[in-house]
């Protein structure tokens, strides 16, 4: 009977793999961890800078939106609201002083919202988009007009303001009336005349946002 004796080179190669087996197992994991660790800016420079996490309503349907927004004091506060898009129409009566530039038109975004009167909803942003996804923002102070700073709450009863921490004690208390449980708003957005609006987007803190498709979209 003959037996094959492994050559010293084969033994040494096999023993290298054997000796380093745990390091070899850990290598893909280490590479994955390295990629994840060096990708920390993806969140701050991309994910949180754009509209990346939508809550989409059915056409003409109300949608419930919840988000815990960072309050700048180290904590979060909840945004709980129900939104429905009623219509996007050519603005009939323009806000005082608004001059529509040549080649542009003004549309009115009619929305119905419901929320508890004690939910902070000030500081929202609104935009309309066309079918290509080009975004046209609501601008409170532009084209010669001054509209409500927050397009999602009644101008005369915007509800509670976000807390400023210790400063709250020295500030004059808010004297605006309590916000109703349900209200409508109709902010005006200026966009090029030939653009057809396919959805409306509303957000408090990116990347979460509400998408409200129009009847046409």
């Amino acid at each position: 009977m003959t037996t094959t004796v492994p050559s010293p080179a084969t033994t040494s190669a096999r023993s290298w793999w054997r000796r380093n087996r745990w390091a070899l197992v850990a290598l893909p994991l280490a590479l994955a961890l390295m990629a994840a660790a060096s990708a920390d800016r993806v969140r701050s420079l991309w994910w949180e800078q754009g509209l990346h996490s939508p809550t989409t309503a059915g056409q003409g349907q109300a949608v419930t939106f919840h988000q815990d927004v960072r309050d700048g004091l180290g904590g979060t506060r909840p945004v709980d609201v129900e939104v429905r898009l009623d219509a996007v129409v050519d603005a009939g009566a323009l806000p005082d002083g608004l001059v529509v530039p040549a080649g542009a038109r003004a549309v009115q975004v009619e929305m119905t919202l419901s929320a508890d009167p004690d939910v902070v909803l000030r500081g929202c942003s609104l935009a309309v988009r066309d079918a290509d996804g080009t975004r046209y923002d609501y601008v409170a102070d532009a084209w010669g007009a001054t509209q409500a700073v927050s397009p999602c709450v009644p101008a005369d009863a915007p509800g509670p303001a976000p807390s400023l921490g210790d400063l709250d004690d020295v500030l004059t208390p808010d004297s605006t009336p309590e916000r109703p449980a349900t209200w409508t708003v109709s902010p005006v957005v200026v966009l090029p005349a030939d653009v057809q609006v396919s959805d409306v987007v509303l957000w408090w803190q990116l990347p979460q946002h509400v998408v409200l498709p129009t009847a046409r979209g």
Partner: peptide
């Protein structure tokens, strides 16, 4: 220049 709206 301030913010420019697309297409305007």
């Amino acid at each position: 220049p301030g913010a420019a709206q697309p297409g305007v």
